[in-house]
Design a protein around this nucleic acid. Structure first.
Lengths: 225, 225
DNA sequence: CGATGCTTTGAATCTCGTCAAGATGTGTGG
DNA sequence: CCACACATCTTGACGAGATTCAAAGCATCG
């Protein structure tokens, strides 16, 4: 259970700088939650009774309209924290991409701990701030970038967040998931991959194994800075 | 100065449920900041040394790339609070749309007050949460909606937030501003207005006076729920 | 090995962006 | 108060980029 703490993941570390005792108190109110691929951790509009940390696996935060349109608001990975809201109901669903090991914290008990452990509250605030900054980036991408730039934007994010800066990693989401994250269609995403491959910026094997051949060009296209 | 407190504005009320004494402490560290139209409250990448509440007027939160692309992240109005960040530098600029009366709070002193006044911290958290929810909506709009639906989305927001649910109000921003908020071009925005006017959903006078003729249809298009 | 689900590619269509002109609105000075 | 200049907005014609529809190619899994 404490493997969550040990993992060398980038941001959203809920446990950062907590004492052993404080961590134990968090662990004591948690229970394990396991998910297979393509299962929901929780649904949009359901009561926001729990919060979660991800120990293993990857998920996506999605919002759907009754017309069947879907926007993916974020991808989340091991070490991340999800489900914190001021509302009584969730504004989004969270769905797994692969096998997931999560810890579930009852909301009221968690909030009580937040009041008692100032550092925990600080960690929440820092995570919230990071999430917000990422939303700004995504908004800029959807508003200003062309399709292949948006794909580069996502690949850069995945390289940083999922793969820990590796140049080779697995694309665990489908083309449709990527499309719904970037505000495109799956065909457009597929064409963007083909184009980036032709330009020798990336290499895709078996549709889901990705290799970054030209990291500088990728960044250039991702941030059009 | 205390008019800020009294104004009946919707959300992001920094002063909500504070005692008179606590409000006075906030006011005591604040100083007045006045802006003419199209002036910057602060710039992207400048040191985040202050926070602000808006007493009067309207502004936009914008992020620009060195390529000259601009994404407007939000419009903000009287009663709103802006500039809160965990970074040492601002991730965005804030620029006025008309004459603005703001209050400026030195960041360190403000943060100290947050530690001393739990309700103030709670207000910040609530505001942050509202901002996040609005970012979700905007992301959905940019990712999933067509141009005229995005324009409806903005008009609905303005009717709610700027005009206090009125059916008639002034469009204080330019077509270019609207375009940069919605990820479109000014021409597309203009065409969307013409189309909505032809469909008798809105009426535009002198390019900046707006009247909502069919509120239900507007909502329908805005939320395509 | 065939069935299924996902991905790629092609062709037609459509929406939106670009470029350009003209209209409307605003502000200034005579 | 009018006339002129400058900003902004509207509209049209065209082209680029994205979506849609359709078919074919690949993996995966029983």
């Amino acid at each position: 259970m404490t493997t969550i703490v040990e993992q060398p993941f980038t941001d959203t570390l809920l446990f950062q700088e907590l004492s052993d005792n404080e961590r134990d108190r968090l662990v004591s109110i948690a229970k394990v939650r396991k998910l297979g691929p393509r299962q929901y951790l929780f649904h949009q509009h359901s009561p926001a009774d729990s919060l979660y940390t991800i120990g293993d696996g990857a998920l996506m935060v999605e919002r759907s309209s009754s017309r069947g349109q879907r926007q993916i608001l974020a991808f989340i990975f091991a070490g991340n924290f999800v489900g914190f809201t001021h509302n009584d109901f969730f504004e989004y669903s969270v769905k797994s991409l692969n096998d997931v090991n999560a810890m579930e914290y009852p909301r009221l008990e968690f909030l009580a701990l937040c009041d008692e452990i100032p550092q925990l509250k600080k960690n929440i605030d820092r995570i919230t701030s990071n999430v917000m900054l990422r939303l700004f980036d995504q908004l800029f991408a959807l508003g200003q970038k062309k399709s292949h730039e948006r794909v580069c934007f996502l690949l850069q994010q995945l390289a940083d967040r999922q793969a820990g800066n590796a140049l080779s990693f697995e694309l665990i989401m489908t083309r449709q998931d990527i499309a719904d994250y970037l505000g495109l269609t799956l065909e457009t995403v597929s064409r963007a991959f083909s184009r980036l491959q032709k330009d020798e910026i990336i290499k895709v094997s078996m549709a889901h194994q990705l290799e970054i051949l030209a990291p500088d060009k990728l960044k250039e296209l991702a941030f059009s800075s």
